[in-house]
Nucleic acid binder design. Structure first.
Lengths: 314, 314
DNA sequence: CTGAAAGCGCTTACAG
DNA sequence: CTGAAAGCGCTTACAG
């Protein structure tokens, strides 16, 4: 099916027509075997149920498709066993390159991906290595901006509702939170930080812990929008009005953030665009073009209605 | 790498060890060429950004993986051009079977999938044909249950906030809505139905249209939870209290439904399980086992706090 | 029981 | 310019 100027146009047209009538399409298996390319990229994620991941993968799929590539989906489910089986499956299928958008994967795993000797692009992750690149949001800076927003509204008791302790992005966002406190000369109060799981359920509990302090926070900066959903719920169940009694800021700007009641102030992370960029880097690498360093994305503060100055009640 | 009792165990172990050291994995390209199987299934969706789709695909990926299959992702984006290019791409890669979880695909498209001569399983879609099966929720029945719930609470002015007009599932849910009205001897009022787009943005507008009637509804049954998000927003911007001034019921029970304020009464659609079931049917078909008919899933009413009896104010 | 050959569907380099 | 052959990495049927 390779076009060539050596064949009479009408002949080519005829062949094409017949091929179409027969529903014939050249097999990439045969082609792949000889060219060593499959025009397929592996996308490794924790779970595709996560709306953050969905956005990223959508961007990836889009540019991949545009360039004739197809996406092989690999969900690790955060399970070490599946992590390795899923990687092997990509390797067996001889993907041309790999994209990883899984926040919670351990490093052995990235080691294994590297061992495939194909280009790999990491999203919101970093791993040194010749063929691996990253596109990541500047978590520290974005978290500082988010917390600073609360400081500027007049809050002095600001809580941090994190994801699981030890997760890189959690550590970074926490660092940004502390940085904003420090720059405003606010004391860091350990009892104002609580760790959930980056999901609504776990975050409700973590939020309650924060809100049951004797000196409770007037504002909470949440690890992500999922956690903010939990915080919103916890506030409602304690009859706290948001933002009058409690300000809440999230992170990600998932589709529902503009639709919570009240609409959520959050840091917008251009998830889809990050997916696109990551795919573009990968395709460049596959085309043999040089492409170095890690791309740092800036988060953007979206001020909506879940934040306000603290009310002066004691 | 095929195990065989004919080879000494220790030899096999040795070979395996060396293979592992060399990071060798048998290529499925060579194998596929001779066996005619790729252990790959194509999953066609509108867009992976849709949380409904994410859940379904997660289920599919799970059972596929468990059985040694890998998922090739194909997003049509509802674009006819991409629909065909994406199908071709699956065909070129010689997927063993196809799963379609795209609500808005036209039938020409399904025709093309059928022409691939591989088993296909449709989710929430029906298409006659020898090799195609379906797993679908009973939209009419579930919508009747949802509307009946409102009737039983005492509502007489019940609105329907639909998806785009003409979509099969919209038509079915609308039919269920009318059925519940009829069985309660309530008149059908055309001015109480409004069509959005199954997304929050478009549904806000559609909800406003409903709420600006002279005799406005005291309850709205929404096509899905996304639409309900829009209805919730519209209510809030009109200072209507949910559920006191307006009851709202959704459809799907997406992850955020339990976390809206107030938590959303909705029809739970077991999305993940539907994905699993669809994959299981496909795998059965691939194994040559007979497997017929379409599986009908029942929706489940989840009563939360967005519905209540209408207040007696005029 | 075992090892060499044929062949799956392609592309590419080469001989005519 | 064109057509036949070799070969990519596998599996399988077959000869020894």
């Amino acid at each position: 099916m390779t076009n060539s100027p050596l064949i009479r146009e009408e002949t080519a047209a005829h062949v094409k027509r017949v091929a179409e009538d027969l529903h014939y399409t050249a097999s990439t298996l045969g082609r792949g075997l000889v060219t060593g390319k499959t025009a397929t990229i592996g996308v490794v994620v924790t779970t595709i149920r996560d709306p953050f991941i969905g956005e990223v993968v959508s961007g990836v799929e889009d540019v991949a498709n545009e360039h004739g590539y197809t996406v092989l989906l690999a969900c690790s489910q955060g399970d070490p066993h599946r992590e390795i089986s899923v990687i092997r499956s990509l390797q067996e299928r001889r993907v041309d390159g790999v994209l990883v958008a899984a926040s919670r994967v351990d490093s052995r795993y990235l080691e294994q991906v590297s061992a495939m000797k194909v280009p790999v692009v990491l999203i919101n992750r970093f791993h040194p290595g010749g063929l691996t690149r990253s596109v990541m949001i500047d978590n520290v800076a974005a978290a500082t901006v988010a917390t600073r927003h609360l400081v500027q509204l007049g809050h002095r008791q600001i809580g941090y509702l994190g994801d699981q302790f030890g997760l890189q992005s959690d550590t970074d966002r926490f660092a940004g939170y502390r940085e904003a406190l420090a720059e405003a000369d606010l004391p860091f109060l350990p009892e104002l930080v609580s760790h959930g799981d980056g999901q609504p359920d776990g975050s409700v509990k973590a939020a309650h812990k924060l809100l049951s302090q004797r000196k409770k926070p007037t504002a909470i900066f949440c690890y992500n929008d999922m956690a903010a959903l939990g915080a919103l719920q916890a506030a409602a169940s304690r009859k706290l009005q948001v933002p009058m009694d409690l300000s809440i800021v999230g992170f990600d700007d998932l589709f529902f953030a503009a639709y919570t009641q009240p609409p959520l102030t959050t840091i917008r992370q251009p998830m889809r665009r990050m997916g696109c960029q990551a795919a573009e880097i990968l395709l460049k690498l596959l085309a043999g073009k040089p492409c170095d360093g890690t791309i740092a994305i800036e988060g953007q503060l979206m001020v909506r209605s879940s934040t306000a100055p603290p009310t002066a009640r004691v």
